[in-house]
């Protein structure tokens, strides 16, 4: 009966079978379906790369959480991406230890190599650069993560190599 009144409101995306399967699995861990909100957003991000409005609405409908509540969760955690990101997200640590050991220079180097500032994505959609407060790896600072890989004791040369490796993989 939804079609009886025309609506200009945003429509939810259909969740994929894999997404639904994983969300259902998470649901078994919690007494309320609503508690799965954050996990469901992570699952969607895992498959889609980021959480679009349509995805947010889909999770909201699937778990019966008001979209406003889910948006609160999605925006609170800064590793939930509400804007599209590149295939590889570079999380460069800018916390105290990494700052002392020259992360600002590393950032300048990445920017000169890839042509992106913090929060930006390369035109070939391969890399997004984001600062992160601490990776808990201070003893081997400066460090950064690309995707789920941690890279430590960084130098400009190491970074060139890492970027080249990811480009080669693409």
């Amino acid at each position: 009966m939804n079609n009886i009144i025309a609506s200009t409101a945003l429509k939810a995306r259909q969740l994929t079978d894999e997404e639904i399967h994983e969300i259902e699995h998470e649901k078994t861990h919690y007494p309320y379906a609503q508690a799965v909100g954050l996990e469901a957003l992570k699952i969607v991000q895992k498959y889609q790369g980021w959480v679009s409005d349509e995805s947010l609405l889909a999770v909201s409908e699937y778990l019966d959480i008001p979209p406003d509540d889910l948006e609160g969760v999605a925006t609170f955690f800064n590793m939930i991406f509400r804007r599209p990101v590149g295939k590889n997200v570079i999380l460069l640590c800018d916390s105290v230890a990494c700052w002392m050991l020259g992360c600002d220079d590393l950032k300048a180097h990445i920017t000169s190599v890839l042509g992106i500032e913090y929060g930006e994505t390369t035109e070939d959609n391969l890399f997004t650069l984001i600062p992160v407060p601490c990776l808990g790896d201070c003893d081997r600072a400066p460090s950064m993560m690309v995707g789920r890989e941690l890279y430590r004791n960084l130098t400009n040369e190491k970074i060139d190599q890492i970027i080249a490796d990811y480009k080669a993989k693409a």
Partner: peptide
Amino acid sequence: TDFGPQASHDNTYFGRWQ
């Protein structure tokens, strides 16, 4: 149900989802 807090620290925002 159509209003809430968003983001955190300096970015904290109170409004609607859209």
